[in-house]
Design a protein around this nucleic acid. Structure first.
Lengths: 338, 338
DNA sequence: AACTCCGATTCTATCGATTGACAATACCCT
DNA sequence: AGGGTATTGTCAATCGATAGAATCGGAGTT
């Protein structure tokens, strides 16, 4: 016999199996002494309750499905580590699934989570298919989104944790403007994500506040990865009057931009200032070290899971939590040269 | 009623529930026509079988527990993405757990996997506690280790996927020796991992082959992270006769070493050559770009999961798979200056 | 017409826990 | 001692699926 069951314990303790069940769950219906004896026997047999059987009876699995677009993305990996930690602390386990932003896979993931009867779903994704969240919400379990606030607030099952992009973005701009920059470009992500839209909004707000004109040619788009970040930078450099500072949607884009600048022999920050966003570990190892916005990634993951657990315990919780980013000034920004 | 069960379908189709079960699993015991009708009804009711109930009956969960020391480690994150992909392709789901190399947590993880009755366990860890694998193996499920071959081969449940460290390491050394380096240092990881031991062995073999002396003062140790990698480099630079080339246990150490060199104004590769190991994404964005050994990280994860699935299907599989690394020569290595 | 055989279903037990209803003690009081 | 109340424990049903045994109706055999 592979596993020890409560019936085995009952036999050994000469009681019935429901008594064992009660004893192990500290029910007041069992005499303390008996309960103690039963617990000892259980321990000596190496009993581990079957979560499967328990889930079937209670209709709760203590299991959370976590979908990511890519675990290889260092931002997401950090978030997940917070998620997992918070889950484990509360006795929840995490099913990890990768969607690769691929619709077929998304459908598969939803089915898998459905069949496994997860108690809730967490989505960490810079890029979520528009139809994906409605699909998920069919399962009628709470959903918490990380960094991807759902624009449609009608469905009461959807919660979110995001960073205050507009605030962080205006702070970056204040920093650059404070250094004396006037021609500041923005390298965005053409995916059309909430976070990109908000960071761009912050960029425009700051320009407006400083009474600088908004120049459409200074806003270019990549895909949030180094390669296209570099291409975007190339386009900026090809302008008749290139910018003196560039604010990138994320560190990955900034990395590509930095390489492009190296390629042109343009010195950062002496000739051009560069700012990223996310504060990935790598930002502390580029040369020059990258000025960027730090997000409390792990903590965001933890918060998201804590919201989830609260919801499942029927404690209400705030629907949308906004955390603050922090501008980390390193070496890639300086006053413009002339 | 939250979920549709086979009984609901049975009622709608006016058959018994076991017939439904058989129809849905393509059993030849059900007339094709009936089966078709049942499947249609199931689909129209949006039926999703309960993996919970099925697991209870079949004693298989189609679930694999994956333990990592840290998902935030980019190497591990890549491996996991391969693991998850392979699992999903075969209908398996992955429980992700973080141990943080913390013994208490390791115990908790084992219990959690036990209670959830995972079919198998995968361990991806640069650093695994010595007592941990024996603890895991108590569960009597197959275990596949990634990059952490278990020295004790007695237990038939343990399989592994590793890179051929000795070969890769001698290749690195051949590259450096071929460039003309004679004083080559090694920055290792004091954790005492199999991979470090093997890479060091390759280092010594190559020295012996070239008939260069092995100088103990040229072998220093960090902890596999940038900070201590930098400190290790400082120790090498403080030697009366510093090395002209340094081979690091991993890219993270090399990153720290690179920063230390920057700090001293030492030019890489003109004045000192530096080699890493792992080919993390970051290695393509340092300056100079890092020469390193690429490991097929994602593929290793995939292979490990494929071994697992074979084992669970009672197909035998090789016990230990060794994959080959590939030396990627970038910009951080060059002939010594004089 | 009785009998076997067989495909198509249905019946029923099972997996391992939980839980409400009920039975059997023990205990206390008058 | 008898009745009532706690206390302690047992019974039996349930969750949703699987799987082996039993059943049913009809065709084929003699």
């Amino acid at each position: 016999m592979q596993h020890v069951s409560i019936k085995d314990i009952a036999r050994a303790a000469k009681v019935s199996h429901p008594t064992v069940s009660r004893a192990l769950s500290d029910s007041p219906l069992v005499k303390g002494e008996t309960a103690k004896r039963i617990r000892q026997i259980a321990a000596s047999l190496g009993y581990r309750p079957s979560a499967i059987a328990r889930s079937l009876a209670t209709k709760k699995t203590k299991t959370i499905g976590v979908v990511v677009t890519s675990i290889a993305d260092p931002f997401i990996a950090d978030v997940i580590s917070g998620v997992e930690e918070a889950a484990n602390d509360s006795g929840y386990s995490v099913f990890l699934a990768n969607s690769n932003a691929n619709p077929d896979r998304e459908v598969k993931v939803v089915h898998s989570f459905h069949e496994r009867r997860v108690d809730g779903i967490l989505v960490t994704a810079s890029r979520v298919g528009a139809l994906y969240v409605p699909l998920l919400s069919q399962l009628k379990v709470p959903i918490v989104l990380i960094n991807n606030q759902h624009p449609d607030e009608t469905d009461g099952f959807i919660y979110s944790v995001t960073i205050d992009n507009i605030k962080a973005s205006t702070e970056v701009m204040r920093h650059l403007i404070g250094l004396g920059h006037k021609r500041i470009a923005y390298i965005g992500d053409r995916g059309g994500f909430q976070s990109d839209i908000e960071r761009l909004a912050g960029y425009r707000q700051a320009l407006a506040f400083a009474e600088y004109p908004f120049l459409p040619e200074l806003v270019v788009h990549g895909d949030g990865k180094p390669k296209e970040g570099g291409q975007a930078m190339e386009r900026l450099l090809a302008l008749p009057n290139p910018p003196t500072a560039v604010f990138c949607y994320n560190d990955m884009s900034a990395l590509g931009a930095l390489r492009a600048l190296h390629g042109h022999g343009i010195k950062v920050p002496e000739e051009l200032s560069l700012v990223g966003f996310d504060d990935l570990a790598i930002a502390s190892y580029t040369s020059p070290l990258l000025t960027t916005v730090s997000q409390p990634k792990q903590q965001m993951g933890r918060m998201a899971m804590e919201i989830m657990i609260k919801l499942l315990s029927r404690i209400d919780s705030k629907t949308n939590i906004k955390v603050e980013g922090e501008l980390i000034v390193r070496e890639s920004t300086a006053p413009p040269k002339s």
